[in-house]
Design a binder for these strands. Structure first.
Lengths: 211, 211, 211, 211
DNA sequence: TATGAATGAGTCTTCATTCAT
DNA sequence: CATGAATGAAGACTCATTCAT
């Protein structure tokens, strides 16, 4: 019983995901979802309060994963990391993101490109802002630890770098890269990014994490 | 006569622009446009084929401007430019973009954030692709001219750099930067970008344009 | 057991009263009632046959009180009352009504203004009709006792007077009168009414009750 | 053309009136109206903004008539009227109301009993309030002219008298009185009312209009 | 007794576009 | 060139009640 009902929940969510992917949140039709789920339209409202709640439920997995990743990323321990192993650290960060993306490709698509009209339509900007604040704090902490660095990086620049991250996520979600292509890109990206940061932060002897 | 009619055209376009800005393409209402233009709803269809055509017309100025900018950017003469003055060149490129943005802030907003549902909803991706191809060609030409550089930059990396460009445009459109903030950002961005490209392209003695 | 169940009954009724007061019968939602009562929606149907029955139950206290008052009002003994003490009698009648109203303000509101759609939606007219018949009888009896009076008062006039009564109840329910205001009104009303009746019934030496 | 279209407007209004009378505003169905009018549902919205506007339009005749009557009733000239002819004046007032009612019986029904849910659902109270204010002013003016009268009539009493008026209208609307019955009632009502007012205002030599 | 699930018809309103005039 | 009228499908969501368990 409990099980059966949970099944229907899942069936509805599955049908909803399909509909959302095909038409985006705004153009998704409750009628269609009901039809595809083989469920009475009004019955859906016994499981979910409204369209938006279904959308959030569909994306809840991804949202939690992102939340965890952000907390991980934000872990203050990383600042005390041995600076010379930072390339390894950066690589770990990237791998984490790549894994996140590959596990939730479809959902990322939904979240980044098809959420307009839903309560998640500003997610992109919100996460950029969060990420930006994290970045600003991070640089401040770095400055404390290594006073020689140039910490006078403008907030907007950090904002842009955060926005870049999301863009990269978006592009990775949109394009199917082979493993080799992915590796190649990561290498290039790391080269580019570390060189850039070194320059901006006026560090020659140190090697910093990419914000 | 002819003049009067052109006036009405413009009035419609003006009302349409307002409506599109306020509600985005999909939620814009032809009724509203007609009402705000003081024109009979069906009369609009004497001037435009449909909603989409109006949208494109509203954005035609920006679209042409972008087109010109892209052609300019793509001008093969630039490859023959004296390489050591490239920083100046990069600066010119950036200024051009900034000017483009400031002249068309509102329209960029429309195009990048509110085109969903229209035939321009993929503009972002399309221009990224175009820009990417340009970038690929550009690097090939550079390689011809300066065989010492590393031209083995992956297409996807160039794609990402193009995507970055658009993200920056988007962010500049969304945020109102003071002149000082803008200058600061540009300086940082140039530092970061040139350092990155130098590294990626294995050039120590040369200095390259940012794709 | 039995007791527990009665508790639930009461909880449901309490939640229902709240919902009815806030939204009126028609717009009251069984879902809301269930939610506010902390009871499964369908379980309500184990205690009540339908929405209407709940409504009647909610108002049963008032309905009984009205019934009693009407019977009291209709008591034939009152006709044999010493005519010169009738002002006191009228005053007693009024006080009874006022007390009735003050004890059931909320329910009167429900019954008079928010019953539309329920089986009680015609209560106002029904009680007016009942009251009217009582009034007609009353006058006939008076005529028997005091043949000098003019008993040729049209039924519709009596109907109007009954309707007036209900209107006054309705207004008293809608407005919060201070004790003083209430007293003042009653005095004025009695003056007005007794003078009116005296005139209509062609009595100079007698003093009649207000129907 | 113009004519044809106006016809459709009228057809819609006619169908709407029927629907409103049968089901009341809230339970009236736009679908039904469309069907009965032989008109596409959405086409109705080319003629009216929404259900409420249709309702007001249906009642516009009555609303204007009421407005005129109220203005007439409120005419300050009536205060300067020769007091001894006031019975004639009162009669004129009553006749005016009776005529108003007979001309708009159905609409009054709609307005007083079936407007719940519409923007006119508070009409009864609103007109009572207006009428009350008029009454208060009227008494003040009378006091100026005839200082001997008792003008200390409580506002609530006047409110009740206004409410009574509306009740009478309502009852007249609900019941079909023959001409004789009507005449009889009016006579009784005038007797009752004038006697009442005389008493309340402590006037023996004067004769006042019913507020 | 109590529950969650299911029903199926119902709500008003909006939409872009076309047509006849 | 301009208009008002018409279209037909679609939108999300709610309702009181019943059923199986």
């Amino acid at each position: 019983m409990q099980i059966q009902k949970e099944d229907i929940r899942k069936i509805i969510l599955k049908a909803a995901r399909k509909e959302f992917i095909e038409n985006g949140f705004k153009d998704a039709s409750m009628r269609s979802i009901a039809k595809n789920a083989g469920v009475g339209l009004s019955n859906i409202y016994n499981y979910f309060r409204n369209k938006d709640e279904i959308f959030r439920e569909v994306l809840s997995g991804l949202l939690h994963a992102i939340d965890s990743a952000m907390k991980e990323h934000n872990n203050p321990d990383y600042i005390s990391i041995d600076i010379f192993s930072s390339e390894e650290y950066m690589r770990r960060q990237i791998d984490m993101f790549v894994e996140l993306i590959e596990n939730h490709k479809e959902d990322f698509n939904l979240l980044l490109f098809k959420a307009s009209g839903s309560s998640l339509e500003n997610f992109r900007n919100e996460i950029i802002d969060t990420h930006t604040e994290t970045g600003i704090e991070y640089i401040a902490l770095m400055k404390q630890k290594y006073p020689e660095i140039n910490s006078r990086v403008s907030n907007f620049f950090i904002h842009i770098m955060s926005s870049w991250w999301i863009s990269i996520v978006a592009e990775l979600v949109m394009h199917d890269l082979s493993h080799n292509e992915l590796e190649e890109f990561i290498r290039e990206y790391m080269e580019f990014g570390t060189a850039g940061w070194k320059k901006v932060m006026r560090v020659e002897n140190y090697f910093f994490e990419q914000i």
